[in-house]
Design a protein around this nucleic acid. Structure first.
Lengths: 353, 353
DNA sequence: GCGTTTGCGAAAAACGATTTACACACTCGC
DNA sequence: GCGAGTGTGTAAATCGTTTTTCGCAAACGC
């Protein structure tokens, strides 16, 4: 291989000779370890400044930490993930750690490789957001590296969990719609490549909660679920399927804002008004939901707070904590213009338009 | 530091002893270097399989490559970046390299730190998307690591460029609006923290092109630019400012889809119809633009192709190429429902048509 | 048949940090 | 005044790879 000549980095040895001290001393100062006099500290610090030295994480990694943590996201299309990232980086700012993202994709295999890639690079810890992996795989990962898992509901003694109370969040939406007077409330859920126990996946919690609340209100017969994807296209497809039913639903609860946006598009295309003909609600309270022309009723979960918590828990684990912690945020409903009382019931068999 | 006991990784030495050969031999096989017999190759390969060995990138990094490349994105809120990432990862799939993302943020200082973090971790190369850094800083980075810069227009002998012909893209939009009969065409542009030469930044190219085309069509007096941000909020603010003008524009060209979405929201709020009262066009042809209820006319630039090209160019540089390459994609206009001929001229200034 | 390639494999020296072990000079306590 | 701590600093081992150097045998040229 022809490696182009590049400027050699300044190393700890350069600093040591420039400051006329031993390499050990420099290392001690950098890691502010015990046994270094104030005078020494100053000498070294100015030498570091003068040479503009930054330790090479790769070399540090060989004997300990790389000060790097890996963040595995399914993809970067969901603005909600950006909130999580914001919270995480805000938290890490006051530390020496840096977060790198990697996309886990929609296939278990890709996610697996992504995690392997992080471990091969000796990250100090891993944060996985809504992973597809089985619990067994997660525990295997946790055996090698500190791990925090976001948005999964199983309990494991080997890694920490940060999650939103999806059960409660979905309940908020469905109850809201019922209180508005809706009965034919349909749901759009997500299907993925995961082999995790279904009950551990957030979309199953949301759809399960939807079903439960419907039943509790005597609406068992009105339950209608379209299994699709949490994406614009998925929401569009799901909504079209739901609209094909007769009588058609008066409200659609999409398990994610992105899907709700797709549902809105499908309704628009079908010439139906929102909320006049059909109410729509989402989940995640994405920035887009707040735009006046969209005005999507949605469930807010504090992504920044979740990211912050994930960072904190992970560093605690890096520092040696072995006992599992579970951090849960409480969702809240943000009601906007996309939901309203259903059109006045025009007789026993309501309006087919 | 208390490091929890974790399973020791299998190393190259383990493989060597398991296969009863030297460490060197294993290394040679891994890097398929010269001087290893087929028999040896087989022995080692089965040993690697059996032990499930994966080389530790950190250790490799000490002597050469880490097989890691860093992707610096301003943020992850723009779905267009996801396209770039998709193209990049698709390209890298056939290689041994892995891409990690890091957010450069909206401030030069943050971006600087992000790049430093990548270099400290000995990535083999860096891809920066729409960076804020000055050209001088970019060249400094390029002196240390192979570098590919996306969406910047300056030419440098030290790094490669991948870009969209923003000049042409903006021209497509403005001409389209003029052909529809619009004269009062306003523009929303972006302001950032960069100290790069203005002409090197994509938003300035777009706004400059807007001005030029307007002038070329005798519409110099109609030029109206709102300087805001390429974001929903920014588009919303910018549009509100533009709508405050009298007479108000009949068309708004937002330099990015996200801003166009904000503009749509502002128009909605103002009780104006699109495209009845005001036409709106964006740039990037985000997935959202295609939703029927948004139907945003936008400029499509092939993000996947750009990501793919960036990966290819970077690896070429890693392999030793030193001559600069410039890769440009040609944008195309996607006309949708958000643009139409202006309302019948209600006044003495008729549509020139 | 003898020196010279050539092919294959191993031993050892890097790479840049951290960590361990130890040396040295003081200060105590009695 | 002497053994036992302390505080401060250094030398050397170590982490897991790649790369360089070298050894040994078989093949080859003449």
């Amino acid at each position: 291989m022809v490696t182009p000549a590049r400027r050699r980095r300044v190393t700890i040895a350069d600093v040591a000779s420039h400051a006329q001290v031993s390499i050990t001393a420099v290392s001690k100062v950098i890691n502010n370890a015990y046994g270094v006099s104030p005078a020494m500290k100053n000498k070294v610090k100015t030498a570091i400044e003068e040479l503009n030295y930054r330790p090479q994480a790769v070399a540090r990694g060989m004997r300990g930490r790389t000060f790097t943590i890996g963040l595995v996201l399914p993809h970067i299309r969901n603005p909600f993930f950006a909130d999580i990232l914001d919270g995480l980086t805000a938290y890490l700012e006051s530390t020496d750690y840096q977060a790198f993202m990697i996309a886990g994709g929609a296939a278990r295999k890709v996610e697996h490789r992504a995690v392997d890639a992080l471990m091969d690079r000796q990250v100090d810890g891993i944060i996985m957001v809504a992973p597809l992996a089985s619990k067994a795989r997660l525990e295997e990962v946790a055996k090698e590296k500190p791990l925090v898992v976001l948005a999964r509901h199983e309990r494991s003694p080997h890694y920490d969990s940060v999650l939103d109370d999806d059960e409660a969040g979905a309940e908020l939406v469905v109850k809201h719609l019922i209180e508005l007077g809706h009965r034919r409330i349909a749901h759009i859920t997500h299907q993925d490549d995961s082999i995790a126990r279904p009950g551990d996946l957030l979309h199953n919690i949301r759809s399960g909660s939807y079903e439960r609340v419907m039943r509790e209100h005597g609406l068992a017969d009105e339950i209608a679920i379209a299994t699709s994807f949490y994406s614009e296209q998925g929401g569009y497809d799901g909504a079209r399927r739901l609209l094909g039913r007769a009588p058609r639903p008066t409200a659609i609860f999409a398990g994610a804002d992105s899907a709700a946006l797709g549902a809105l598009a499908a309704l628009h295309e079908a010439g139906l008004s929102v909320p006049g003909d059909v109410s729509v609600a989402g989940y995640d309270n994405t920035h887009l939901a707040a735009l006046p022309n969209i005005a999507l009723t949605s469930v807010d979960q504090d992504g920044r707070e979740m990211g912050r918590a994930a960072g904190k828990l992970l560093l605690e684990r890096v520092e040696g904590r072995m006992t599992p912690v579970r951090f849960s945020v409480t969702p809240s409903l943000v009601v906007r213009g996309s939901t309203a009382a259903p059109a006045a019931p025009a007789g026993p068999v309501p309006a087919v338009r």
